[in-house]
């Protein structure tokens, strides 16, 4: 396989991992202020993702770094072009990141409420913006002959992209709710099951709207880079099945299904994009592709060796950390946050 394709796949894997993992901690963060008003319950909710969220976020940092190293033009065009959107995302992630550490270090209720809402906003804004970003990847953005973004902030906020943003927001919320049914006990778990069933409705509705909309707004269905075959169909089936699995108290399976829905739809989008990485709405000749945006063969080779050596290692110890904290978190236990 040519190295450009390998790196396109690796970046797809990194984004998929990011959406799958950070997806549920975004969801938990979004639900946090609504699930409970009691401090002890809120702390328990936060503790279900406490040991994991930072490691999950590193999937994004690594995706960004890999983009920079393997496709510098993609990184440069995207990050400078989506300037204000990324600024908003950064501010959200700053508040969210420190909120986990700060919220329980002071007991004033207003202090805690402020940081809880920071966790909410810091989770909801990126959850929405990532959908907006992916939609714009496939719909196309004004990119000129010099690979520079020629639009403004509001070009990104078109109805289609917003629909995709609301879809990702709702799916992550569902993913988080299902995660909570897996990680909590007693009253909190019951609440989580109810929340998950509620969250399933908008997630499914918005997904359907998004899929129909995609037919009109993008060439994803007609101009597939690689035919994804049944992958998107599996994604839909997985999402729909969640409600039945929740009815049967099969929380583990339900979580697997929201995970598959997220992973498979991400993969579908990236397959549709291939071999392009950013679509120019001005002229197809100005598309960024894995060829005109990539680093040299030598650099891609070095990076491939590094990735082959260290990605498995990361998977092993991150997996181990999930194993260490596999138990449910109860309100009666000792709370670190």
């Amino acid at each position: 396989m040519e190295l450009q394709t390998l790196w396109f796949i690796l970046i797809t894997v990194l984004f998929t991992g990011f959406f799958f993992l950070e997806g549920f901690d975004f969801g938990v963060g979004i639900l946090l202020p609504f699930m409970s008003r009691e401090d002890i319950e809120r702390r328990t909710i936060i503790n279900t993702i406490g040991p994991f969220w930072d490691g999950n976020e590193v999937w994004l940092i690594t995706a960004g770094g890999a983009m920079f190293a393997a496709f510098p033009e993609w990184y440069a065009t995207l990050f400078s072009g989506f300037y204000l959107a990324l600024l908003l995302m950064l501010v959200a992630m700053i508040f969210r990141g420190v909120a986990f550490e700060f919220r329980s270090k002071h007991s004033d209720p207003r202090w805690r409420s402020f940081w809880d809402w920071s966790i909410f906003a810091g989770s909801a804004i990126p959850a929405l913006l990532w959908g907006v970003a992916l939609a714009n990847f496939i719909r196309g953005i004004p990119i000129d002959a010099e690979m520079n973004y020629a639009g403004g902030f509001f070009n990104l906020l078109n109805p289609y992209a917003l629909a995709c943003g609301l879809t990702s927001l709702s799916i992550f919320t569902l993913h988080g709710a299902v995660f909570l049914t897996l990680k909590t006990t007693d009253a909190l778990q019951e609440k989580a099951v109810k929340t998950a069933k509620l969250a399933w409705v908008p997630a499914v509705l918005l997904s359907f709207i998004f899929m129909v909309y995609t037919n009109y707004e993008t060439d994803l269905y007609s101009h597939l880079g690689i035919n994804p075959g049944i992958i998107p169909i599996f994604s839909v089936i997985a999402l729909v099945s969640v409600i039945f699995l929740l009815q049967k108290n099969a929380a583990g399976w339900a979580f697997a299904m929201t995970g598959i829905a997220i992973a498979f739809s991400t993969i579908t989008i990236f397959m549709g994009l291939y071999p392009r990485v950013l679509v120019s709405s001005l002229d197809p000749a100005w598309n960024l592709t894995i060829y005109n945006a990539s680093s040299s063969e030598y650099t891609l080779g070095i990076m491939s060796i590094v990735a082959l050596l260290f990605v498995p290692l990361v998977l092993v110890y991150q997996g181990w950390s999930y194993w260490v904290f596999r138990q449910r978190v109860s309100t009666g236990g000792k709370l670190e946050y």
Binding site: G65, A66, M67, F68, T299, V306, V311
Partner: peptide, 10 residues
Amino acid sequence: GVPLAIEALL
């Protein structure tokens, strides 16, 4: 970009 990506990964 290479050391930056390695920094994240490693």
